Amino acid sequence: MNVIAEMLLTEPAPAAIWATLMLLTFPALLLLGSPNATRHPRRAAREWVAALRHRDEERLAEAAQASRCAEEIRAAADHAATSAQRWQQLWEQSEDELNAAWQGWLDADDRLRKALTAAAWGTPPTARTCEEYAARERYLLRAVAAAADRGELPADGHGWDARLHPAEQDVVIARASRAWLRQRYERAVAAERAARHDAERAHRAVGSLRHEAHVAAVQARELSGLRPAPRRGRAATGHGPETVLAS
C-alpha cells in the first residue's frame, strides 16, 4: 500500500479534503469532457451557467407552488377540524341519549314488575255499568297521558281497552311502555354507532390533511433551500466565466 492510500485510509481529514476537491472540480470535468465545450469553452460556460440559473428558477417556482399547496391543505385541515369538533359533539350527545334510553328501559321493566305484582292479587271482572266503565276510562286516559308526558309512551298511542280494571290497565300500560322504550333504546344504539363512525372518520380526515400539509411544507422548505446565485457584472469583478476561460 502506497503512502497516499495509507494516509487516506487512516486520516479522515485528507479524505474529506480530497472529496471536497472532487466536488468542486466536477463542473470543470464536465466541460472538458465535452468535445463541443473544448472547441467553444466560452459558449459552453455560458450555457452551463444559464442551465444552472434556469434550474434554480424552476426549483424556486416549485417551492412557491409547494408552499401555496401547503397553505391550502392547512386551511382545509383547519376547516375539517371544525367539522370534526361538531361531529364529536353529536357523538357525545348521542351517547347521553343512549344512556338515558337504557335507563328508561330499565325503569319501564321495573314498573312492569310492580304492576304485575299488584294485579296478582286479583281484579274484578270488566266494567258492568256505564258509571264503572266511565270511571275506568277516565283513569285510563289520565294514566296514559301521564306516561306520555314523562316520555314513557308515544304521544299518539291508541288501542287501549277502558273496560279493564285499573290494575290491569296499569299492566297493559307498563308493557306498552317497556316495549316502546326498548325500541327507543335500539334506535339510540344505532344512532350512537353512526355518530361514532362519522366522528372517527372526521378525525381521520383531519389527521390525513395535516400530514399532507406537513409533507408539502417540508417539500417547500427543501426546494427553497437552493437560491439562485446573485448576478454580478463582469466589469465590477473581472472574473466572469468568459474571463476565466479566456485567461
Rank of each mutant, 00 (worst) to 15 (best):
Gln85Tyr: 13
Leu90Ser: 02
Trp91Lys: 06
Gln93Thr: 03
Glu95Gln: 07
Glu95Phe: 00
Asp96Asn: 07
Ala100Arg: 05
Trp102Asn: 02
Gln103Tyr: 07
Asp107Thr: 07
Ala108Trp: 10
Asp109Lys: 14
Asp109Arg: 15
Arg113Ser: 15
Lys114Arg: 15
Lys114Cys: 06
Lys114Tyr: 10
Leu116Thr: 09
Ala120Thr: 12
Ala120Leu: 10
Gly122Arg: 01
Thr123Gly: 09
Pro124Ala: 15
Thr126Cys: 06
Arg128Lys: 15
Arg128Met: 10
Cys130Ser: 12
Glu137Tyr: 05
Glu137Asn: 10
Arg142Trp: 06
Val144Lys: 05
Ala146Thr: 08
Ala146Met: 12
Ala147Asp: 02
Ala148Val: 01
Ala148His: 04
Arg150Trp: 14
Arg150Glu: 09
Gly151Tyr: 03
Ala155Met: 11
Asp156Cys: 07
His158Lys: 14
Gly159His: 01
Asp161Phe: 07
Asp161Lys: 06
Asp161Thr: 04
Pro166Asn: 07
Pro166Tyr: 01
Gln169Val: 02
Val171Cys: 11
Val172Ala: 11
Val172Ser: 06
Ala174Asn: 02
Arg175Tyr: 13
Arg178Thr: 08
Ala179Asn: 14
Ala179Val: 12
Trp180Lys: 01
Leu181Ile: 04
Arg184Cys: 05
Arg184Asp: 01
Glu186Met: 14
Glu186Trp: 10
Val189Ala: 10
Glu192Met: 10
Asp198Tyr: 04
Glu200Gly: 03
Glu200Trp: 12
Ala202Lys: 05
Ala205Val: 08
